[in-house]
């Protein structure tokens, strides 16, 4: 019996030896993202954004691949966020090289789905530790990032995309990619690796834009005039494709399925909207969607929640201070 007790006491030691965070930690990562100037209460990455709301109209085409209820033919409401990369919530919209769309489907009390999508279809690097070095290079300036990219051959597809990418004149005209791959899981338990993209249905040239909040002003007035529509297109991997490597796109001839249309019907400034409180952690998944082993995807939860914890505490402290002053 005493041996059993002793053996039980070794279980935490096993947990500890299973893997120490030998490389970059979530805290170091978020420290790097937030930089020297902290904007209390705001996201440490993609700090500037605007809340959106609308509906996903599913055509049922994907229902055989995933048991997630929002892929049944029908309508699911969402709230979300359109944002630009960077740590400054007041940065000029047009200076950022990356634009993003995040979505939150509150399907039920037990089923939630958060999505965080960016304009680049692939990552420059394949793991969070190299990604940390990439952000360091970005912060160090154009020469450093050029050198970083030239030292990382896995960045070749990202570089090819960046070389031909032209920013449009609207959040409505960008294509937003899942970047990482996920599995669709159907009711028979069959898995299909997929990536997806929100594809725009309008073309807007960049030339007409001006001002610090150019993109936010443009999308707010556009949606006030008429709903903005995206097609939600899934690309299905074949066995030869590597779903765990976010630097490699899959061949162009892979089967694509349009799951339906994402219809944006409202915008709200982020401090007045519901999106500001949400952690758009792409690993909040409903039954029927599962994470791949992609190391970047698997690092996102820990990094997002570290940023979330910091700004949540700042908001709590602010609220407590505010109520003391009343």
């Amino acid at each position: 019996m005493k041996t059993l007790y002793l053996a039980l006491l070794f279980t935490p030691a096993l947990c500890l030896s299973a893997g120490k965070p030998a490389q970059v930690t979530a805290q170091q990562f978020v420290n790097l993202q937030q930089g020297d100037a902290v904007f209390p209460g705001f996201r440490r990455a993609h700090a500037k954004g605007i809340c959106i709301s609308g509906e996903f109209h599913s055509n049922g085409q994907l229902a055989g691949y995933s048991k997630a209820s929002l892929f049944n033919e029908g309508v699911t409401p969402f709230i979300g966020r359109l944002s630009i990369a960077g740590n400054n919530p007041t940065a000029p919209d047009l200076k950022s090289p990356v634009r993003s769309m995040a979505l939150s489907f509150a399907i039920s009390h037990t089923e939630q789905w958060r999505l965080a999508m960016n304009t680049p279809p692939v990552m420059a690097v394949a793991d969070p530790h190299t990604f940390y070095q990439q952000i360091q290079a970005v912060q160090a300036g154009p020469a450093a990032i050029q050198q970083f990219l030239s030292e990382h051959p896995e960045a070749s597809e990202f570089r090819a995309w960046a070389a031909q990418y032209q920013a449009t004149g609207s959040f409505a005209a960008e294509t937003y990619h899942s970047i990482n791959a996920f599995y669709l899981v159907n009711s028979n338990g069959e898995q299909q690796a997929v990536r997806w993209a929100m594809q725009p249905t309008v073309a807007v040239p960049a030339s007409a834009l001006d001002g610090n909040d150019a993109l936010q002003t443009e999308i707010a007035s556009r949606i006030a005039g008429a709903p903005v529509v995206f097609n939600w297109v899934f690309t299905l991997a074949e066995p030869a494709d590597d779903e765990d490597n976010p630097t490699k796109a899959w061949p162009e001839n892979r089967r694509q399925v349009t799951a339906g249309q994402l219809i944006l019907t409202g915008t709200t400034a982020q401090l007045e909207g519901d999106c500001h409180a949400i952690n758009f952690d792409p690993l909040v998944l409903p039954s029927g969607i599962a994470a791949t082993r992609d190391p970047i995807l698997r690092a996102r939860s820990a990094a997002y929640v570290e940023s979330y914890r910091r700004r949540a505490k700042e908001q709590l402290d602010g609220a407590l201070e505010g109520s003391n002053n009343d």
């Binding site: 935490p12 947990c15 893997g19 120490k20 930690t25 979530a26 990562f29 969070p128 820990a302």
Partner: peptide, 20 residues
């Protein structure tokens, strides 16, 4: 309890694939 405390301290810092 000791395993969960150890796991908790590890998973709030780690970016490794097993974190999830």
């Amino acid at each position: 309890v000791l395993s969960m405390l150890a796991a908790g301290l590890l998973m709030v810092t780690s970016l490794q694939p097993w974190q999830l």
